[in-house]
Each structure stands twice: as C-alpha cells, then as structure tokens.
Computed example of a mutant assay.
Amino acid sequence: MQDSASNVASQEWLDAVRWDANGLVPAIAQDATTGDVLMMAWMNKEALQLSAQEGHAVYWSRSRAQLWRKGESSGHQQVIREIRLDCDADVVLLKVEQKGGIACHTGRRSCFYRRLESGSWTVTDPVLKNPALIYGNGGGHGHE
C-alpha cells in the first residue's frame, strides 16, 4: 500500500466514494501483475477502510450481512497493492496479490470462468482445488 497511515485514518477519501442506497460499492479484484480480473464483491465504508488500513481485502457479505476477510476460511487472502476509484466514484478496483492463486469459492483462479459461446455458458477455466478440500464443508458459499 502506498498510503501512509495518517492518510488512511482521514475520512475524506471515503466520503469521495459514491455509495449506493444500501451504503455499498462494487469492488473488483484484479491481479496486480497479470491484470486478470479475479472477482467482484461488495464493500461498505468499514470494509473499504479496513482494507486500506490492513492491506488485505475485506468485503461485505450481503447474504450474511457481515464483513468477511477474503481468505479467512480458505487461506486465499488478497494482499492489496493498490486501491483505485473509477471516474464516476462508484466502483472500487483493488489490484491484489492473490495468495494461493485461487480467488473463487469454486476452487478456480477467477470467478469469471464461463464464456458465452453459441448461446450458452461454457466453462473455460479448470478447478485448481476441490472446494471441499479448501473449506472442509463440501464447498464455499458465495466467495466465503
């Protein structure tokens, strides 16, 4: 992370984000080295602030209505190299180092493993590790 702790402690940068009606912003995780898009999740203000402070991705789970630290159950943390905000200030981009090479709860490198071909979704990327082996419970549930 390039921000100093004092810059991150200020609320001004958080207030510049255009949060939706639920207080959320979409966050895209991108491999900092290859540029591959790994996943998309949601962040609330606390998740974004914690991500910047801790240097690891923290997201907001809409289904569980709680914060979740990427990799807390899988070990596949995302170390943040850079945080960017788009031109409309309503999408966050995290450039990350993906620990373990797996971002998706399905055991794949990326959540974007299906491609539209001839009117149907074709799986293009292999499972790198069985989710049951990652989570020990028969698979993850919506990221983590």
Rank of each mutant, 00 (worst) to 15 (best):
M1S: 08
Q2V: 13
Q2I: 12
D3L: 11
S4T: 15
S4H: 12
S4P: 06
A5D: 07
A5H: 10
A9D: 02
S10Y: 00
E12A: 07
E12R: 03
W13S: 04
L14H: 05
L14I: 08
L14Q: 03
V17D: 02
V17E: 00
W19E: 01
W19P: 00
A21R: 14
A21H: 13
A29V: 07
D31V: 06
A32K: 08
T33F: 04
T34D: 05
T34H: 07
G35F: 07
G35L: 04
V37I: 15
A41C: 15
W42I: 00
N44G: 03
K45M: 00
A47T: 04
L48R: 06
Q49Y: 13
A52V: 04
A52F: 07
Q53E: 12
Q53A: 12
Q53P: 05
E54M: 09
A57Y: 01
V58K: 11
V58Y: 09
Y59I: 03
Y59S: 06
W60G: 07
L67T: 07
W68F: 15
R69P: 11
G75V: 11
G75C: 10
Q77N: 14
V79C: 02
I80H: 05
I83Q: 09
I83S: 09
R84E: 15
R84H: 15
L85V: 15
D86N: 14
C87F: 07
A89C: 11
D90E: 02
V92S: 01
L94R: 08
L94V: 07
L94T: 07
E97H: 14
Q98R: 05
G101K: 13
I102L: 10
H105W: 12
H105M: 12
H105S: 12
T106R: 09
G107Q: 00
R108S: 03
R108F: 00
R109K: 15
S110N: 10
C111P: 05
C111M: 05
F112R: 06
F112M: 07
Y113G: 07
Y113K: 05
R115C: 01
R115Y: 06
L116Y: 11
G119I: 04
V123W: 01
V123D: 04
V123G: 01
T124D: 03
D125E: 15
D125Q: 14
D125W: 03
P126Y: 05
V127A: 08
K129T: 10
K129V: 12
K129F: 04
N130V: 05
N130S: 14
A132C: 10
A132Q: 09
L133G: 11
L133N: 14
G136N: 01
G138M: 09
G138N: 09
G138R: 05
G138P: 10
G140T: 14
H141R: 14
